[in-house]
Simulated assay, not measured.
Amino acid sequence: MYVLIANILLLFFGIGALVTGYLNKNCQVAQAREHWLKLFFYFLILILVFFSIYTDYIRLLAICIGIVGLYEIVKAHLLSKRSLLLFSPVLVVYLALIAAFIDFGHRASTEKVFLLYFTVVIFDGFSQLCGQLFGKRKLIPSISPNKTTAGLVGALVIASSTSLFLFPSIGMSIAQTLMTTLFICFSALLGDLLASWYKRSCQIKDYSTLIPGHGGILDRFDSFIFSGAMYGLIYL
C-alpha cells in the first residue's frame, strides 16, 4: 500500500510540475520562482507527514500542529483587535477540533491515517490545478476567492478515482471507499473554508510566514485538521 501511494503521489507531483511550468510561461520571473518554491515546500511537507505516519509519530505531529496553530489563531485575533467575546467561540471550536484530531492520530490505524492524508493531498492539489486550468466560476468568492467550481468538481473526480486503487489494502468495499473519500473531501473543503473565513474576519492574508509559499501551519494543515477530526468523531 505504501509503495503504491508513494508512486501515485510522485506521478501527481510530476503532473503538478508540468502544470506549474505551463502556467509560468506567462508569469514574471519573481512570480514563477514563487510558484516553484511553493511546490518544493509542498513536497517537503508531504515527506514529513508521511514519515510521521509511517513511523507512528502522527500523534506527536498533531500535537505540534495544534500548538503552533493555537499561536497563529491567537496572533490573528490580537492583530485584528476584535473583542474577546467574538474570539471565545472560535477558540473553543479550535481546541475541540485539535483534541479530536490528536485523538484520531492516536486511535486510527496507520492505513486509515494514510488514506485520509492521501485523500486530502490529492483533493487539495487538484482543486488548485483544475481551478487554475479550467476555473471560471468562483465557488465562494467572499470567503475564498481562489476556489472555483471546476476546481472542486475536478478534485472530487480525481480523488474518488484514485481511492479505488487503495480499497483492497484498507479493508473496505468499493462503495465504502468512495463514500469515505467523498466524506474526507467535503470535510477538507469545509475546514479550508472555515480557516479562510476566520482569516477574512481578522483581515489577514495568511496566518503567518512560517512556510514559504504557503503561509502558516493553519494555511497548510487546516483541511487535514478538520477532516481528521471529523473522521475520528464519526468513523472511529
Rank of each mutant, 00 (worst) to 15 (best):
V92D: 04
Y231F: 15
T55H: 15
S208N: 04
S163L: 02
C185K: 02
M179T: 15
L133S: 03
G151F: 04
I53S: 09
F43Y: 12
Y235F: 08
F134Q: 08
P212S: 09
A62K: 07
L139A: 06
L48C: 14
F186Q: 10
V19L: 09
A99V: 00
L115Q: 13
A96Y: 09
T177E: 09
T55G: 02
F224E: 07
P168V: 11
Q128S: 12
V19D: 05
Y54D: 05
P168M: 12
V157D: 01
L129E: 00
F87P: 01
S163T: 07
A195S: 15
Y57C: 14
S173D: 03
F114K: 05
F165T: 05
Q176S: 13
F165M: 13
L91D: 04
F186E: 08
G131L: 10
A175I: 15
A155M: 02
R82V: 10
G135R: 12
R82W: 01
A96L: 15
T181F: 06
A76E: 01
L61M: 14
I58M: 15
L11Y: 06
S83W: 01
L129H: 00
L44F: 13
I122R: 01
Y231V: 14
L61G: 11
A96M: 15
L48S: 11
D222C: 12
V121K: 00
L116G: 02
F183N: 10
R33F: 05
K136H: 12
Y57P: 03
P89N: 11
F13D: 03
F43G: 15
H77Y: 13
Q176H: 08
P212E: 11
